[in-house]
Design a protein around this nucleic acid. Sequence first.
DNA 1: CTTCAGATGCTCT
DNA 2: GAGCATCTGAAGA
Length: 197
Amino acid sequence: MSFSRPLPHTFYAEDALSVARKLLGHCLVVRSEEGVTGGTIIETEAYCGALDRACHSFRYRRTARTEPMYGPPGSAYVYLVYGIHHCLNVVCLREDEPHAVLIRGLRPTWGLGVMARRRGVPSRANDVPNPRLADGPGKVCEAMGIDLADNGTLLTGGRLMITEERSSGGCIVQGPRVGLGDVGEFRGLPWRFMLTG
DNA sequence: CTTCAGATGCTCT
DNA sequence: GAGCATCTGAAGA
């Protein structure tokens, strides 16, 4: 099993909207003791830093939790939501403008058995991918074995990486972001990106 | 297919 | 103490 090279840090040195769109079709790969898992990124959301009321770094809020958002582009920001689920974000733009892209969904590609076991669902015969295995941000982290130990690590060639290879085909659809509280005019903005097909 | 309630623990006020 | 960038299973249409 071999993978293409990881995306370089320059890929991430753009605003969250650009990176959220560009990431669709690339593959998130995680190496672990249990085996390698990988999946094509098919859903993302952009969180646009200091000006975005829905973003953890709104108005440059800088706390122990949000500190990784001020790290280098191409690093991971992982946090716990609802006390139960982890969410994986890719830090982008610049260290002084903390944008991030939430990875909301994958099409499982490698390590289907490992992913199914972690998720507590039955494996499918003949390596038939289960499209429901990682179709949500919490599910992505659980299936890929991502947790706070990965917080702040680089995605440009470590345990976690996003590879250069991009699956062809499909159509990009945009819509409003999901699960936000009272964020005023930021609620309806089409900052969620999905790859169909 | 849909809606709905509950789980659960950290973060910030 | 309030509020979460969520998921699941049960119940109804």
